[in-house]
């Protein structure tokens, strides 16, 4: 199972307010707006390498059972998008 991480050579600078965030990627020089869901995902991955299942479990816990339809697919899409933007990579552990 793939685990995702923020690469160690990549400094992320954060601005968080009201659950939303803007993150600056030092490797690309670009900034990205993160809504509350994506913000939570990236913060969780930044703490430690996580699999999609880890993330799903973490978010489901926060939602207290109010999980949207096709949530696992949506998490997979977001992980792909974060990887495309260079914010996360598959972990090489």
């Amino acid at each position: 199972m793939i685990r995702w991480c923020v690469p160690q050579d990549r400094e992320l600078l954060w601005y968080e307010r009201e659950g939303e965030a803007v993150v600056f990627n030092s490797a690309s020089g670009r900034s990205h707006y993160l809504n509350a869901l994506i913000n939570e995902m990236l913060r969780y991955i930044e703490e430690a390498p996580r699999s999609a299942a880890d993330i799903h479990g973490h978010l489901a816990g926060l939602m207290d059972g109010a999980e949207p339809d096709n949530f696992a697919d949506r998490i997979g899409d977001i992980l792909g998008s974060l990887a495309l933007q260079g914010l996360i990579d598959p972990c090489r552990e």
């Binding site: 601005y15 939303e20 707006y33």
Partner: peptide
């Protein structure tokens, strides 16, 4: 909302 304000300003800054 400040995060949205920030990203909008970043997007419009010529040399950001």
């Amino acid at each position: 909302p400040k995060a949205r304000g920030l990203i909008t300003l970043c997007g419009g800054a010529a040399n950001y």
